[in-house]
Design a protein around this nucleic acid. Structure first.
Lengths: 145, 145
DNA sequence: GCAAATAAAGATAGAATTATCTTTATTTGC
DNA sequence: GCAAATAAAGATAATTCTATCTTTATTTGC
């Protein structure tokens, strides 16, 4: 469903959010280690997210990635689209050039229904909410064993 | 959502079904042309589907791919799994090694809900049904313009 | 100003997916 | 039996995704 890059991105951003709550910027290395993702690849993804204004960054000692007021409204949807693009949500699910309500491909209605639910879920979930659920222990971001 | 191979596979199998209804075996070339997919790639996919008993094939003149009684119970789910594997439906959506109802990843419940709907849809849709809807004009398999 | 820490950028490599080409095996119709 | 048609198998190439390494640019603390 999501690419590896996207999976790493989602987990990283939740961690960065969590640390930003206690005013800590976090490095790519620390983040990658925490979410169990390859470090240089994670760094690339975070770089890209900064470019797209999903998160912020600061160079130099005690620098790192962070999430500030300006990123608070970011939804999971924004994040996923920033990394994977909108291919999951738009275009024909079977790759037809022409596919619409009027000329639906054999899976048009079915895929549409699932897409709507997916978009709904990703739009409603804020990163804040995800981070808070991890914080409270409702969900887990990494294995602690 | 589905790989290209899977998209080509789904469309091809619907066409093959349709032709099997009128007792016509169809070649890889004809199938690929009909569903607007690259020919050698389509041939490979169909080969694989034969190996997995999703469709049948016969060599020689007036041979080709077909769908017989023995394939009638095949669901879309069988087809998708045969080509893309079950990665869409199993394992953690964020790639965590440990993720379950008891130790859910931040998206576990949400992804589960969508997966259940997807599995439900793919399991209930038979290839027969898809082919009949194309036949009746309810849905379209390729652009006719 | 300088050293250290960090992100950013760019180059490279490995693996998987997508796609093509060539050769071989089988089947049919004559 | 032979030619033609077709699927099957195997080799190769192109592209994209995943991953790493190296160099450069910034920023901080001293």
């Amino acid at each position: 469903m999501f690419s590896k890059a996207c999976q790493y991105g989602i987990k990283s951003v939740i961690y960065i959010w969590k640390q930003s709550q206690i005013d800590q910027k976090v490095g790519a290395k620390e983040t990658a280690a925490y979410v169990d993702a390859p470090e240089p690849f994670t760094a690339k993804i975070l770089q890209e997210l900064v470019r797209k204004k999903i998160i912020g960054s600061q160079k130099g000692p005690s620098g790192g990635f962070y999430i500030g007021k300006e990123h608070e409204a970011i939804s999971l949807m924004d994040l996923v689209v920033a990394i994977d693009g909108d291919g999951l949500f738009t275009g024909c699910g079977l790759g037809l050039k022409v596919c619409s309500e009027l000329d639906p491909c054999p899976l048009h209605h079915e895929i549409n229904k699932i897409r709507i639910e997916m978009i709904d879920m990703l739009t409603k979930k804020s990163l804040k909410q995800l981070a808070e659920e991890v914080e409270s222990g409702e969900t887990v971001l990494r294995r602690l064993v």
